[in-house]
Computed example of a mutant assay.
Amino acid sequence: MSQHLNRAKTLAIAALALGVALVSPAMAQTEAVPQAGGSEAAGSEKAAPYDDRLTRLSEVVGAVHYLRNLCNSAAEPEWRQSLSDLMENETKAEPKRRARLTAAYNRGYRSFASVYTTCTAAAVRAEENYRNEGATLAAEITARYGN
Rank of each mutant, 00 (worst) to 15 (best):
79 W>C: 10
147 N>D: 03
124 V>G: 02
137 L>R: 00
44 S>C: 03
56 R>M: 08
22 L>W: 08
73 S>G: 02
54 L>F: 09
145 Y>I: 12
35 Q>H: 06
26 A>I: 12
143 A>G: 05
106 N>D: 11
70 L>C: 00
128 E>W: 05
29 Q>F: 05
66 Y>T: 08
26 A>C: 08
36 A>K: 00
86 L>M: 15
103 A>M: 10
30 T>L: 13
133 E>P: 08
117 T>C: 01
114 S>F: 12
10 T>C: 04
44 S>P: 03
60 V>P: 06
93 A>K: 01
100 R>T: 09
60 V>T: 11
131 R>H: 11
132 N>T: 14
2 S>Q: 15
61 V>C: 03
51 D>S: 02
112 F>L: 10
89 N>M: 01
26 A>V: 12
77 P>V: 02
82 S>R: 13
45 E>D: 05
34 P>Y: 05
25 P>Q: 15
61 V>M: 14
33 V>K: 05
69 N>C: 01
32 A>N: 01
111 S>L: 02
10 T>A: 08
137 L>Q: 02
89 N>T: 03
139 A>N: 07
47 A>L: 12
40 E>T: 00
19 G>S: 11
107 R>D: 09
137 L>T: 04
124 V>P: 02
125 R>I: 01
134 G>I: 13
140 E>W: 14
19 G>D: 14
2 S>H: 13
121 A>C: 02
80 R>A: 13
78 E>A: 11
26 A>W: 09
24 S>V: 11
50 Y>F: 15
104 A>R: 01
82 S>M: 15
47 A>K: 06
41 A>L: 06
100 R>Y: 00
137 L>N: 03
31 E>G: 03
2 S>C: 12
78 E>Q: 10
53 R>G: 08
5 L>V: 12
32 A>I: 00
53 R>Y: 07
59 E>R: 07
65 H>P: 10
30 T>Y: 09
63 A>M: 11
87 M>S: 00
118 T>C: 00
5 L>P: 10
67 L>Y: 09
93 A>W: 03
50 Y>H: 04
66 Y>A: 08
64 V>S: 01
102 T>E: 06
114 S>L: 14
9 K>H: 11
67 L>T: 10
57 L>V: 09
26 A>M: 14
39 S>K: 00
114 S>K: 14
20 V>W: 08
107 R>S: 11
129 N>W: 09
116 Y>W: 03
66 Y>W: 07
84 S>H: 09
51 D>K: 04
78 E>W: 06
131 R>N: 11
91 T>D: 00
90 E>I: 13
24 S>T: 15
4 H>W: 11
51 D>Y: 07
29 Q>N: 06
81 Q>N: 07
60 V>Y: 02
103 A>T: 13
82 S>T: 15
43 G>N: 06
144 R>Y: 10
46 K>Q: 11
88 E>P: 01
15 A>R: 01
114 S>H: 06
110 R>S: 11
21 A>C: 15
105 Y>R: 06
34 P>T: 04
81 Q>V: 13
132 N>F: 11
87 M>D: 04
38 G>D: 04
35 Q>N: 02
69 N>A: 07
141 I>S: 04
12 A>K: 06
122 A>I: 00
134 G>R: 08
118 T>R: 04
97 R>H: 09
91 T>L: 01
